[in-house]
């Protein structure tokens, strides 16, 4: 068995790293400082590229020797061929895209496996705020409504409905709380207690 990712990696990224086969070719959408790619390159012999729009992050990746391509995720993945990567990863960006559904279709075209993560809008804190007639401001959704990049939030159940509708195969999922643990409560009522949802998806057979 491969060793688990060490705590030095951001916990949600460590959970993703555990899913990735050594030596794989990976595309990381919205790669930030390239933390995941750097860790995977060093510990798993993974090669690939990050896509990033922010000039600060791009410079950081270049300094760290990580392959980074400065591009806007909403511009799409048109520069990448079908099944040209083993994994396409997108962490915490889905809810900020113009069309998250189109993005996942593209991810599953370019990658044999797609990995996406998003904050669960069904979490009880969100529901509690809305029940009191307020837009939620929570640890995973810290911005006020008028200044948030998150324009397409969804719950775990919404997301799985979309997967079913589009026939995307859920190969694996991890539903974590804010401390990135999978506790008993989450197992009993995932849509109420999960704060971070991680999904490993695949295109339906013959639908590439």
């Amino acid at each position: 068995m491969k060793p688990s990712a060490p705590p030095s990696l951001r916990p949600d990224l460590a959970a993703i790293a555990d899913w990735i086969r050594p030596g794989a070719r990976i595309l990381d959408l919205g790669c930030g400082n390239g933390e995941l790619l750097a860790w995977l390159a060093e510990h798993r012999g993974v090669s690939g590229y990050g896509l990033e729009i922010d000039p600060e992050h791009v410079a950081h990746c270049i300094r760290a020797g990580i392959n980074v391509i400065q591009a806007d995720l909403d511009d799409g993945l048109r520069d990448f061929g079908d099944a040209s990567f083993d994994y396409v990863v997108m962490t915490q960006a889905l809810q900020a895209l113009q069309r998250p559904d189109d993005a996942i279709t593209e991810i599953l075209r370019v990658g044999r496996i797609g990995i996406v993560t998003f904050p669960n809008f069904g979490h009880w804190r969100v529901r509690a705020a809305l029940a009191l007639g307020r837009m939620p401001v929570t640890p995973t959704l810290p911005e006020p409504w008028y200044d948030t990049p998150n324009i397409h939030l969804c719950t775990v159940d919404d997301f799985e409905d979309l997967c079913a509708q589009r026939q995307w195969i859920i190969r694996s999922r991890r539903l974590l709380d804010r401390s990135h643990r999978e506790g008993l409560r989450i197992r009993i009522a995932p849509n109420l207690f999960c704060e971070q949802a991680l999904y490993m998806l695949q295109a339906p057979e013959g639908h590439r």
Partner: peptide
Amino acid sequence: VKALVEARRDVSYALIE
């Protein structure tokens, strides 16, 4: 960049404002 990615070369791309 597209051709380099397809050729599996190491490449970074910076777009300067």
